[in-house]
């Protein structure tokens, strides 16, 4: 614990966030885009916990708790949207869905 600098945790978190961004931009499958968003949320959670630990402030861990709740709500609504999208258009590939485009 004493030997690991804070910057290492922030580095891992930043790399995970970048992976999530690349996933959202490059993939076409709505479910995988969804998973990439989860990766980004988790990267931010890691930053929160690391700062909470190193600054001795519990607020970071409380925030992670709330972020997880929001992620659960987002999962429920997002997957319901994917489900009804598949029911109406028979696809989950985001570039085949263009009803909002004109």
């Amino acid at each position: 614990m004493e030997t690991i600098p804070l910057e290492y945790f922030l580095g891992i978190s930043a790399i995970l966030f970048i992976i999530g961004v690349i996933g959202v931009v490059t993939r076409r499958n709505a479910i995988i885009i969804f998973m990439s968003i989860e990766i980004m949320l988790n990267a931010v959670n890691l930053t929160f916990v690391a700062f909470s630990r190193y600054m001795n402030d519990p607020a970071g861990q409380i925030f992670v708790f709330f972020v997880m709740t929001v992620a659960a709500a987002e999962a429920a609504v997002g997957l319901a949207i994917v489900l009804s999208l598949f029911r109406n258009k028979q696809t989950v590939y985001v570039d085949e869905v263009n009803i909002m485009k004109w």
């Binding site: 959670n45 992670v64 997880m68």
Partner: peptide, 25 residues
């Protein structure tokens, strides 16, 4: 999170993310 000594968050991570959300996905 366990390395960071945040035991509660670690357990919640496994329960909520690896358990609930991924089962849904």
């Amino acid at each position: 999170y366990l390395v960071l000594q945040a035991q509660f968050i670690a357990v919640i991570q496994v329960l909520v993310y690896a358990g609930a959300i991924m089962v849904l996905v």
